[in-house]
Design a protein around this nucleic acid. Structure first.
Lengths: 346, 346
DNA sequence: GATCGGTGTGGTAGCGCTCCCATCAATATG
DNA sequence: CATATTGATGGGAGCGCTACCACACCGATC
């Protein structure tokens, strides 16, 4: 593609293309938009003219009349962006990006530092739809989107959400796998560090922990469950693990297995365990959840439940575009499978 | 292609606002654009109407006539996004986002997986300017941008770049600080793991390493310098460190200090050192560069040269907006200072 | 009192594009 | 041969907005 901009050279418009091609503006437009009702001859002439002039359609003008932008937004909070330990959205973003590109749309990443700004941004009609991530219970964004009639797909399922497009992974099943793996390795006292319980994925993972234990005829010991709250700031999982170790002192058995609701928490847990003189996996086995990009190179490499990140992104995008194109108001939710990734930590 | 909307729920236009406020469209427009030539009375009426109708200006229509979009793009390659170990752009992005928001513009993050697509995307005039990151020698993007007349600011300085807005940190000075710190701690044999030598920041850091040694009356021993190439794939720094240790066997003195060109490489180096039975910092002191978000929680916490990430982002944004507003073709480069962050690894 | 500049205002002309519609030639049908 | 049918085409309208211009009105100046 060669676009040469001479000073003072106005960017070519469709009229210029039509003039050079010797056809009317409408015909030129048909070629650009891929309408079938054009003669092969005219089509060639227009395509040549486009190449010669380096014509690129003006997005604003097009979107003004079509009332579409052919762009979708991926909403990301400042907070999510700055948590490299739980850098899980990278893979999703890659999947989204690939799918969006393959379909000739544009991807806009909206940093959502301030909620009201997000809404007014979207109201300007700069995108056709929105991809939302990782909701906490009480997050109003899905309802806001629905209110302003903005097509949307959510990764995760909002609390109390009846109908609407969302893509989740089998959080409960994955958690069950993790705990079963620990039990199979011989762990007798398996603790859990949960994510913030306002987060729905976290809740499901906690459920899976309980399900697995009960299925094995064990009970959930409340003393073995601590919430690793992000709000606790730096090293949330370290705090949680330290708390578990404190509680352990007054118990009969030492903790020999830990299931952490995210890899970030698992990393913290391993650090805290080390600081307390425990070896991983010899003394305590640790399993995380996410298989985020840091897990494989962590010391020790972290055994974890992998989410199909890229597939999540692709699926979300497909669903959103379908929704936009068809005008469908609701879609059945999609649940993607997780997979145990065995590494050294358990 | 019909997006379902409630019948009659047409989004209000400026004409609607003007009608409700009892003024002409021009006056309404002046209020929206913040023109001073409006009476206080008319202004109030229009603002009330806007609030009542929930009016939000249509971005496409505005940009069609103003030939501006009030949006800028932050170009990120797929590759950069997926390297959480060297997750350095997060802070820059935050700085950019803050500054953009403060100035009432929009930020678009363009995933640049395919170069030609980037160019045609930008040619559609969806943004007023571009922020470019971390260039390698031979990267054509700055020249492409200049050719199509797209205002741009670059983090780092392209090879052979004469004039043009760029923001760099004092890579050489920072590297010097790092090496001086190691020398002050008593290190006698200081190795360096460089970044890819096509990367200009990496080259400057290597220069600083040499400068510091020479200033102390030492020489650069080629056997102590290895390039930790990203292309080598996973654990580039581990490979490099292993190579250094192999070379060490045939030398008189053991390596007791390592300066890595990025924190990601430093992490790898520590892992390789541990794998070889060396303790950090007791046997070998390690200093990184970047102070990326992982450095503080690494085991051991990494001593490193901090870049003022957020400030880089803010500065880039300010320069870009000034360029856009003023139409200035060139601007003097800005160099921001680095800072030694002493932690446990050295 | 006539002229001047400054100020608030509304109307009009597009920005570049797609869509609808009228046109026209070429073919198929009665 | 007249008429209906098809397909390709160009012209015009208009998407929602801002820039420009013309105008009415004001007080100040000569």
């Amino acid at each position: 593609m060669i676009i040469s901009e001479r000073p003072g050279a106005r960017r070519p418009t469709l009229d210029d293309v039509a003039a050079v091609a010797g056809v009317g503006r409408s015909t030129a437009s048909r070629v650009v938009t891929g309408s079938p009702r054009v003669s092969a001859e005219a089509k060639r002439a227009v395509e040549d003219a486009i190449a010669v002039l380096g014509y690129v359609p003006n997005a604003a003008a097009r979107s003004l009349v079509t009332r579409r932008t052919d762009a979708i937004a991926f909403v990301l909070s400042d907070d999510e962006l700055m948590r490299p330990d739980d850098f899980y959205f990278g893979g999703i973003l890659r999947g989204v990006s690939r799918e969006v590109t393959a379909r000739g749309r544009q991807l806009v990443i909206a940093l959502n530092d301030d909620e009201s700004r997000l809404e007014s941004y979207l109201a300007r009609q700069v995108v056709d739809g929105v991809l939302l991530l990782s909701l906490e219970a009480g997050d109003s964004r899905p309802w806001d989107m629905r209110r302003i009639g903005m097509p949307m797909v959510i990764a995760g399922r909002p609390d109390g959400w009846i109908a609407g497009a969302c893509v989740t992974v089998d959080n409960e099943g994955g958690a069950r796998q993790a705990v079963e793996h620990l039990m199979a390795a011989g762990c007798r006292r398996i603790a859990m560090i949960t994510g913030g319980m306002r987060n729905l994925d976290s809740r499901a993972r906690y459920e899976g922990y309980g399900t697995a234990l009960r299925a094995a005829g064990r009970l959930v010991d409340p003393a073995l469950v601590v919430e690793g709250r992000r709000l606790m700031g730096h090293g949330a999982g370290e705090e949680a693990m330290a708390e578990l170790l404190r509680r352990e002192e007054s118990a009969d058995f030492p903790i020999d297995g830990v299931f952490a609701a995210t890899d970030g928490l698992a990393f913290d847990a391993v650090r805290a365990l080390r600081a307390a003189g425990r070896r991983v996996p010899e003394d305590v086995r640790v399993v995380g959840f996410d298989d985020n990009p840091l897990a494989a190179t962590f010391d020790p490499p972290l055994t974890t439940i992998a989410q199909p990140y890229e597939e999540i992104g692709r699926t979300m995008t497909r669903m959103l575009l379908e929704q936009i194109d068809s005008g469908a108001a609701s879609m059945p939710p999609v649940v993607l499978p997780t997979e145990l990734r065995r590494r050294a930590s358990a």
